[in-house]
Write a protein that binds this DNA or RNA. Sequence first.
DNA 1: GCAATATGACACTAAATGGTTTCATATACA
DNA 2: TGTATATGAAACCATTTAGTGTCATATTGC
Lengths: 120, 120
Amino acid sequence: MQPFTHGGRRFDDDRLDAVLHALAHRTRRMLLNRLAAGPAMVGELAEPIDMTRVAVSKHLRVLENARLISRTIDGRVHRCALRPEVLQEVERWLAGYREFWTEKLNALARFAEDGNRNKA
Amino acid sequence: MQPFTHGGRRFDDDRLDAVLHALAHRTRRMLLNRLAAGPAMVGELAEPIDMTRVAVSKHLRVLENARLISRTIDGRVHRCALRPEVLQEVERWLAGYREFWTEKLNALARFAEDGNRNKA
DNA sequence: GCAATATGACACTAAATGGTTTCATATACA
DNA sequence: TGTATATGAAACCATTTAGTGTCATATTGC
């Protein structure tokens, strides 16, 4: 059912789909960058973006579902904030993933090198 | 036109959209994992996946467009391979991105800490 | 030349995405 | 109380995505 999974670190596939998809849109990355400077309300976030507030709201929802941001409702204001734990989680996964890849590729490269050496 | 961009490292937004979108699908990640073990032809890649060859072919196209894999046509066989340079490029970008975020967030945390200390 | 193989191209469908506009709701404040 | 503000919800639309099946094309090997 799941060929080719790389063993070790378990990071749910659904989770990865959600997080990577959330990151795969420049507007959402822009929002995250803004939130790295500190929490902000939806209106503040939408203001500099050439887009309806509703659209921005939807993007925030995507980020929220991927647990990349949190939202606390404070009166009529919704305050959004980055969730650093999740970022770390993602980064740790990515490092592992890359490690897995490069390890394999290095092995391949060594193999190729040996092949050439034998030829020479 | 581009508020909130984080300065420094320039990694085209289009490029990021493409790469992250390519990664944001478990089938494509599976394909990459398989390719980390060495180059393979389309048929080999499609075989263990419960999906039409045509569908797999499309996923490969997405990966190719994001320049995560290369394809060399060898007779009637299309041989695909991971492109490690691009992976490194991506990883470097991600590290910078995370660095930017955590730096800002750490500054925020220190600020909050100071605030509490003053209160106490 | 002919049959089998490896693959892409094309046309189609269902569902998701990224937007929009309009309306509802809750809160703040004069 | 009444009005302005902050926001979500719902309905809608165009485009893209992720699949499918069928057909075309090029290559290999008898």
